[in-house]
Design a protein around this nucleic acid. Structure first.
Ligand SMILES: [Mn+2]
Ligand SMILES: [Mn+2]
Ligand SMILES: [Zn+2]
Ligand SMILES: [Zn+2]
Lengths: 145, 145
DNA sequence: ATTTGATTTAGAATAATTCTAAACTATGTT
DNA sequence: AACATAGTTTAGAATTATTCTAAATCAAAT
């Protein structure tokens, strides 16, 4: 399975439209790859996955599409230390957990009350429009989910 | 003013000793640069500042010293988006605020209770040994501190 | 059909960081 | 003191994720 669900296809063209950008097969395929396997892939990984569905796509296009999706607000970049940028289509407020052992990155839902509280630690003159929360450690048990 | 205070010199050699590393003039100078101007400089900036006190130091040595200080736990790396790594000698629990307008990075103290609460959002199987919190936005007023 | 501008593409360029290998320095031993 | 050893510094090369460039392709509008 790989093609975009109707809902996601709609969200994609709405967002692209809104920023005066075209809906293209490359953008649809890259977006589908991100929605389909939500493991915070790097550009390289997105390239490999997209190429398996669309063998002619280039790395440059993957970077272009990812940048477009980010600038339209459909995808977030996740930077952890100096590692290659990862991409996350989860738009709900969440933190990331980076496992030192496997290198994998997991979404951790954050109650919106907590986000409020976080904003509260900022002195008055600081006006934040984004908050980024990253945990690092390891997962206990064989729980790899 | 630039030389290390006795307290800091002690902390430095203790930490280096503890990890079987030598106290060298380069390491002292780089550490002093970080303690002296706590604006989260990049390696380039640390290089420039250190060079003004020790004109023969090389970029490679600055990177080596910074890495040594980090591995001894005296300094933290601060990564924001894809920008060059910054270095922070503030060991108390704090968040960072990145001003989109000036590019500057500020320390924001975080009450330890808040850190507890943050750890609380993690499901049981996630064991975090570090938490990183970064705000992005802008500073109101001419308050450039 | 033609024009226009956006998009895709291959490959070159960039830039922060890491690596390499040689010179230098400090420390411990005879 | 001379020597051996291991750690450190250094210049420059290498690496690598990402961005840039310029040409080819595509799609909408006239
Ligand atoms: Mn990792
Ligand atoms: Mn910036
Ligand atoms: Zn995520
Ligand atoms: Zn800091």
């Amino acid at each position: 399975m790989n093609s975009l669900k109707q809902m996601d296809r709609g969200a994609l063209s709405d967002a692209l439209d809104h920023f005066g950008q075209r809906t293209t097969p490359q953008r649809e395929t890259v977006f589908g790859v991100l929605l389909n396997q939500r493991d915070h892939p790097t550009a390289d990984e997105v390239y490999a996955r997209t190429k398996s569905q669309m063998p002619t796509i280039s790395m440059a296009t993957v970077y272009n599409c990812l940048e477009t999706l980010v600038s339209c607000g459909l995808v977030k970049q996740v930077n952890i230390e100096r590692e290659p940028t990862r991409y996350c289509p989860n738009l709900s407020p969440h933190a990331h957990f980076h496992c030192r052992e496997t290198g994998r990155v997991y979404d951790v839902p954050v109650p919106s009350g907590m986000m409020q509280e976080l904003a509260g630690v900022l002195p008055g003159e600081y006006e934040a429009d984004s908050v980024e929360l990253v945990f690092r450690g390891h997962l206990s048990k064989g729980k790899t989910k």
